[in-house]
Design a protein around this nucleic acid. Structure first.
Length: 818
DNA sequence: CAAGGGGCTATTTTT
DNA sequence: TAGCCCCTTG
């Protein structure tokens, strides 16, 4: 992203704040409650805002920034605001812009990771990297680690690539590097020695490839600041106000980064200087040699800490006052999002986490609707309920985009998706197999990386035989050996195909690849001084895909999935064009960095009228009118694996709490009595969290007791809607100490097999018109009211005799014409 | 060297 | 179940 130069007053000094008489920020305080105001106007070295869910923290944060600017207490360029997702950053930038106009342009509002990329990009040459370094995402580093584990035969010592990867990641999050770890490792343990070797090799490989992995982005920035204090001082002088959102999710490395940035600066301020296209003028040190540390504002809620598994340390927030003596603490407990019933449920659940500061959310919005509970016989039954409920809410006037469905694990989305497709409910899945993780997209990016950062061996090796060029392991090793012996990179070795001692066919294939990459370099990396055309990245990518034969191979393939892959590649080129529009001066390197750092939760576009499906983790920070939390079962939430992890169950409870508190008006909690996992159907039990919610808050459409009691012979779809069973006290029957009551007889299990046929049917050619009668596998007979849409997306609006009105996607609905 | 088959195993959350 | 890895065959 290109930074806009901000010219500040030549004196470089900050204008004094005006007196209280006519606060320039008076309008910023309107409509805020006293605690929120306090959080906006407090001035001091350190401020902790403990913000319960829905308590308006983004509002407070943005108003605080605006107030600093309005009062002329800070220049935009002196503000650094850090969030965890790009989406949150974008939202914050937008809201600040609404308050202060384009003064917001000069601020850094970004994620930890992108802020560090920006810093590293400027300083990379200080410590042996080049400006065009690339970023390894977890897939890339897994591939590299896999290779190293194999090389070292580390699996013989019980090291799987996954375990090595997570261990390295954990160490890096603790700011431990390969050397420091080696020094204190128990080297008499052979397993430990092997791990040290793999770790060391991994780090050396990264350095050689001129690449950072995700964790390095933070860790290496801290290292940079510590090893080169004069570099750190530049940023300490620049950023006078640092604000961190979701502070409870910071890990040790991020914590250290914040600490480094907020240290006082010793010595004289240097002359104003220019760097990276940005003018930075320093304020004079206030009356002395030493410039005090930047003021730090952190916002967080320890009840929403859900990332301990990736190193987040809740102590960062709970011990903030100890870390920053004299810190001011402001508590925001009034909730502006949810109804009291929803908050009561949330409070009741989170209360069971013992070592927490008591905090109670409240609202004056009224009790609102009761929470709706539903127990399905199977996950499909549960999904059917969700789909029907979504439709009912939609008919009642709620937009699809105001509804969301949450689940604990990505694999749960499948059942929901199948039913949603069949019911023609528009939906959108966030996360899961992300676009950027698809093989063809990773290939396309590897092509770009090979051009942008020729030192990145992993990227070059990845595309070596994609599309198939007849280059296999043997040839790859030959190239690697040659590169090693000549002391050149893998990429450069390709230019010497004839020296590799491989057959003529292979030589030609390698030379061809080399030529394509070279040609693309000329398009995308013009000689220094010359500016690449804004569309260079997109053009270069299109060219690479065409001339490498990649697209041709897909076009020629008879695998039906390859058509979709081609479309994905088109989409990728479109993304590159979009990037060029937004960043006219962006280079391939910038493009790759942006792509590496986007998460799927970032490209939520709200205008689309679609129900959002996502994991509970992805849901953090979002809110919806109506929320469905699905799969509220033991072993799912809390997840089975969490049981043995220290702090695991408590973290799961927070995760559930996060899900519940996303809802504004309506909350649905659902579960299934049986769930298919890896082909086996297993019995599920209601989550303990359900029992922590007072019974009177839940209106069970179908309680676990109902399902269990009736033995479950009827399919949900054939039941009349709205079967009330009251909030019967099913607890007594479903306590954890007597689960046997739940054990279904095998015969009843067979009545709820996976109701979705394994193979998706194709009714594509079925001709239906208003007035036709049809029979549906689940809903029975009905009459077609209308047919809308075209081609594969034709939808039949059917009024069923017993099941009511439904919309069906004709192509795949289990229907026959009568 | 590629492709296809068979057998195995791993199943959480993600910047 | 599905994705992965290894092995065999072409």
């Amino acid at each position: 992203m290109a930074s806009t130069p901000i010219i500040v007053s030549p004196s470089g000094s900050v204008p004094p704040a005006r007196g209280d008489s006519a606060r320039p920020d008076a309008d910023l305080l309107e409509g805020l409650n006293p605690q929120q105001r306090e959080a906006v106007v407090y001035r001091g070295p350190a401020l902790l805002i403990v913000a319960g869910a829905g308590s308006g923290k983004t509002r407070v944060l943005t108003h605080r920034i605006a107030s600093l600017l309005r009062g002329r207490e800070a220049w935009p360029s002196q503000i650094l605001a850090i969030t965890f997702t790009n989406k949150a950053a974008g939202e914050m930038r937008e809201r600040v812009a609404q308050l202060v106009g384009n003064a917001s342009q000069g601020m850094w509002i970004s994620t930890f990771h992108s802020a560090c990329v920006r810093i590293l990009r400027r300083e990379a040459e200080q410590f042996g990297f080049t400006k065009s370094f690339t970023i390894y995402d977890s897939g890339d580093s897994r591939a590299l680690i896999k290779r190293l584990v194999k090389e070292h035969e580390a699996d013989a010592f019980g090291h799987s690539p996954a375990s090595v990867q997570s261990r390295i990641s954990k160490l890096k999050n603790e700011l431990e590097d390969a050397e420091s770890f080696a020094r204190q490792a128990n080297m008499s343990d052979p397993a430990e020695r092997v791990f040290v070797e793999v770790f060391g090799d991994y780090q050396r490989a990264l350095r050689k490839a001129n690449a950072f992995d995700f964790d390095d982005l933070i860790g290496q920035t801290v290292y940079l600041f510590r090893a080169f204090p004069h570099v750190a001082d530049v940023y300490r002088r620049r950023f006078r106000h640092i604000l961190v959102d979701e502070y409870q999710d910071t890990n040790a490395a991020q914590y250290a980064l914040i600490h480094e940035l907020t240290r006082p600066v010793q010595g004289q301020a240097p002359e104003p200087f220019e760097q990276g296209g940005m003018m930075i003028f320093e304020p004079e040190p206030q009356g002395g040699e030493q410039l005090p540390g930047a003021s730090l504002t952190v916002v967080g809620d320890s009840d929403q800490s859900i990332y301990a598994f990736r190193g987040a340390d809740i102590r960062n927030i709970s011990e903030f006052e100890r870390d920053f003596p004299g810190a001011k603490v402001v508590l925001l407990e009034q909730n502006y999002r949810s109804t009291q019933n929803i908050l009561d449920a949330a409070n009741a659940v989170i209360r069971n986490n013992f070592d927490r500061k008591d905090k109670k959310l409240w609202t004056d919005a009224g009790a609102g609707a009761k929470i709706v509970g539903f127990t399905g016989y199977s996950q499909h039954d549960e999904a059917q309920f969700v789909a029907e409920e979504v439709e009912a809410l939609h008919r009642a006037g709620l937009a699809y985009s105001d509804m969301a469905v949450f689940y604990r694990t990505n694999s749960q989305s499948r059942a929901l998706e199948e039913i949603f497709i069949r019911s023609a409910v528009p939906y959108r899945i966030m996360g899961g197999t992300r676009f950027y993780e698809r093989a063809e997209i990773k290939d396309a990016l590897a092509y770009l990386t090979a051009v942008a950062n020729p030192l990145d061996d992993m990227a070059v090796r990845r595309i070596l035989n994609r599309p198939r060029r007849g280059i296999g392991d043997v040839t790859e090793s030959a190239i690697a050996r040659y590169a090693d012996s000549e002391g050149i990179s893998f990429r450069d070795a390709l230019a010497n195909a004839s020296a590799l001692g491989v057959g003529p066919k292979l030589q030609a294939a390698i030379a061809q690849l080399d030529a394509v990459l070279a040609e693309a370099s000329e398009v995308m990396l013009p000689a220094t001084g010359e500016l690449a055309s804004p569309t260079a990245v997109a053009d270069g990518l299109a060219m690479l895909l065409e001339k490498s034969g990649y697209r041709q191979a897909l076009r020629a393939s008879k695998d039906p999935q390859d058509e979709a892959r081609l479309e994905n590649l088109d989409e990728m080129v479109a993304v590159a064009r979009e990037f060029a529009r937004n960043n006219p001066e962006g280079t391939v390197v910038d493009f790759l960095a942006e792509v590496a750092l986007v998460a799927d939760s970032d490209d939520l576009d709200d205008e689309a009228g679609q129900v959002s499906l996502m994991t509970l983790h992805t849901a953090k920070g979002l809110e919806y009118e109506a929320v469905f939390v699905t799969g509220v079962e033991e072993d799912l939430i809390p997840h089975r694996i969490s049981a043995n992890e220290p702090g695991g169950p408590a973290e799961e409870r927070r995760l559930f709490y996060v899900g519940v508190t996303r809802a504004r008006k309506r909350l649905h909690l659902s579960l299934a009595m049986t769930r298919a996992q890896f082909g086996e159907i297993s019995v599920a039990m209601p989550s303990r969290f359900l029992q922590e919610i007072p019974a009177e808050l839940i209106d069970w459409r179908q309680s676990p007791g109902d399902v269990n009691g009736r033995g479950g012979t009827q399919s949900r779809a054939l039941n009349a809607r709205g079967q009330r069973s009251g909030s019967g006290n099913w607890n007594s029957r479903l306590r954890h100490d007597d689960p046997p009551a739940l054990k279904p007889r095998s015969t009843s299990l067979e009545k709820f097999p996976n109701r979705i046929p394994a193979k998706v049917r194709d009714n594509g050619d079925m001709v239906l018109a208003a007035g036709d009668r049809i029979r549906h596998e689940d809903f029975g007979e009905g009459r077609v009211d209308a047919v809308t849409g075209e081609g594969a997306k034709r939808v039949a609006h059917v009024r069923f005799d017993t099941a009511g009105a439904k919309k069906l996607l004709i192509k795949i609905a289990p229907i026959e014409k009568l």
